[in-house]
């Protein structure tokens, strides 16, 4: 026991010693902005410092592999190798955060961070700053007119009507699909939750008109539908479900776990299945493998758009605009420091 305690204290001293030594050796190189190579005499050049030291390395942040946001971002900047997998170049350290909130809070507390998040949640955190992409600022207008490059569709896929034994439920599913893609109430609900619409809400028909036309005598009060798939769509889905329940009495309960479960859920054999869904949502396009398991009755399409914005810490005053090329270089490890990054933009 004495030996164990002795070993532990030795190791502890070793770690503290090593940290002190490594900290002592970390003197930043002199730069035009920072000729002394230190932060104004402050030896503790930590990340909470207010001055932005461009000689520092870029801390790269990403979403976890499999995330729709990640796929959209890396596809957009032309670095497709890492859109699904962690095929980072050797020596590149990237911290993968598992949610939009996590990446925003990490970038918000790391002055030298570079990351990305979805446009919808950008304004919710004040410690981060969205960057222009190829000179275009991300906004609903620039996304809809296509000038903003880093965008993706929120897609849906429905269950085959032939698989239902309960005709009422099949009808409810069909009604919900029409509600979210065509009715003005549905489109409004999507827009209210931050989804970027490509259809015009004003010219869209009211649900009462659509119901009378396509579903005469529709009675789906008390029916419960299950949604599955992407977690990114959860907010939009929440708005849609509340509006649909108010109008028809049919409940849509979200069981979101990830885009990968959308097709799995709607093609699952029955309600007892591990993942079951009447409607599945994806924050990416349906891939070839998934398409193969669908038939013509599994109608699918886009409900709205979302955009991904490159973000930095709000204290990073040196960068306002980025290009696809420079972002790719940073994530490839070819541009390591902020000074090189700024140089490359010029």
């Amino acid at each position: 026991m004495k030996k164990i305690l002795l070993l532990c204290s030795l190791a502890l001293t070793g770690i503290i010693g090593a940290t002190v030594v490594s900290c002592g050796g970390d003197t930043p190189n002199p730069t035009p902005d920072n000729p002394g190579g230190n932060n104004g005499g402050n030896n503790n050049n930590n990340n909470n410092d207010d001055t932005f030291d461009t000689s520092k390395n870029i801390s790269l942040y990403s979403r976890e592999s499999g995330s729709g946001t990640r796929e959209c971002f890396f596809e957009g900047i032309g670095y497709g190798d890492v859109k699904k997998d962690d095929k980072w170049n050797k020596g590149v350290t990237v911290s993968a955060q598992s949610s939009n909130g996590a990446i925003m809070s990490a970038v918000g507390s790391d002055q030298y961070a570079l990351g990305y998040c979805s446009l919808d949640s950008l304004d919710t955190v004040s410690t981060i700053k969205g960057l222009k992409f190829n000179g275009v600022e991300a906004s609903n207008e620039t996304v809809v007119d296509g000038t903003y490059g880093l965008q993706r569709n929120f897609n849906y896929v429905v269950r085959d009507s032939a698989l239902y034994t309960d005709a009422k439920k099949a009808k409810a599913k069909e009604a919900f699909e029409v509600f979210m893609t065509e009715s003005s109430e549905g489109l409004q609900a999507i827009a209210a939750q931050g989804g970027i619409l490509t259809k015009n809400v004003i010219t869209a028909k009211k649900w009462s008109e659509i119901a009378a036309e396509k579903f005469p005598g529709l009675d789906i009060d008390g029916v419960e539908l299950r949604a599955c798939g992407s977690t990114s769509v959860e907010k939009v889905l929440g708005g849609l479900a509340a509006s649909f329940e108010e109008l028809t009495g049919c409940k849509v309960s979200p069981n979101q776990s990830g885009s990968g479960d959308a097709v799995k859920g709607v093609t699952a054999s029955g309600e007892g299945a591990e993942i079951y869904g009447d409607i599945g949502f994806l924050s990416r396009e349906i891939n070839a493998e998934e398409k193969a398991s669908l038939n013509t009755n599994n109608t699918n399409g886009a409900i709205c758009k979302d955009a991904v914005v490159p973000i930095v810490n709000v204290k990073n005053t040196a960068v306002e605009n980025v290009t696809a090329d420079i972002l790719a270089k940073a994530y490839k490890g070819e541009v390591k420091t902020w000074s090189a990054f700024i140089e490359a933009i010029k």
Partner: peptide
């Protein structure tokens, strides 16, 4: 814990 680690005088990934 992460903010405390971030105070280290070397660059960290927000303490992660």
């Amino acid at each position: 814990i992460c903010p405390i680690i971030q105070m280290a005088p070397v660059q960290t990934f927000a303490g992660n």
